[in-house]
Amino acid sequence: MSMSDNKSFFSVKNIHAYYGESYIVQGVSFDVAEGEIVALLGRNGAGKTTTLKTLARALDPKLRSGEIYLGGVALHKMKAHEAAQAGVQLVPEDRRIIPGLTVEENLIIAQVAPNKGWEIDRIYEHFPRLAERRKQDATSMSGGEQQMLAVARALAREVKLLLLDEPYEGLAPIIVHEIEAILQEVKKLGITTIIVEQNAVAALKLADSAIILDTGEVAFRGTAKEVLDNKELREEYLAI
């Protein structure tokens, strides 16, 4: 059992994950300190989303080997709902707001299983727009509002590790600013976070450090500033 000191609060050890027979995550290892915000970057198809889903213990991709520890707890032995109860909160790509449910029901459903995070009233205080729309069918809201709800839904649960998958995807620039502001607020809560984002510059603004993936392996691990300052690195792996 690994020790959970501050520097390896979240620890990923040589994970290999597959979609069917497609070998996507090819031996990824990294450590994240408690409270650290990491941008997980890389070109399309580098395995970013697959890595994130593996960390959240989705059934698909299948984790064939490797170990994942959160505060010393072995996530790799868990199913998705058990990992979520252990404090992993995935805000997935496309937000995955549940259709046919109201805004409030989408928040209630997040608190069915232990452990609870913010009370719904507190969420409404911080997200007055969601309070206004509480009785509305959640998927009838705009993309930005749905992203807001997706973040709020994660906060409705106890979060030890927040996994954000493409939070800015498909949003107009002005809305991206709005979500950025929300994530800056979330940052103040000191939640350990991994953010996957095509918009690397936006992700690095938020992050303390960065991991660059290339064809399913870690190509770089360092500070956010190092990535922004290193032109070659950016051109080779991020095309920015």
């Binding site: 959240a56 989705a58 059934l59 199913k79 998705a80 709902h81 979520a84 109860q85 909160q89 995935l90 997935p92 995955r96 549940i98 259709p99 046919g100 449910l101 029901e105 209630i108 459903i109 997040a110 069915v112 299983a113 232990p114 839904r153 649960r157």
Partner: peptide, 18 residues
């Protein structure tokens, strides 16, 4: 509510600990 939500997106419910 849980069943209705599960009918629409059971994987997301698992990500929410259900």
């Amino acid at each position: 509510l849980i069943v209705r939500a599960g009918m629409r997106d059971s994987q997301m419910l698992a990500f929410l600990g259900v």
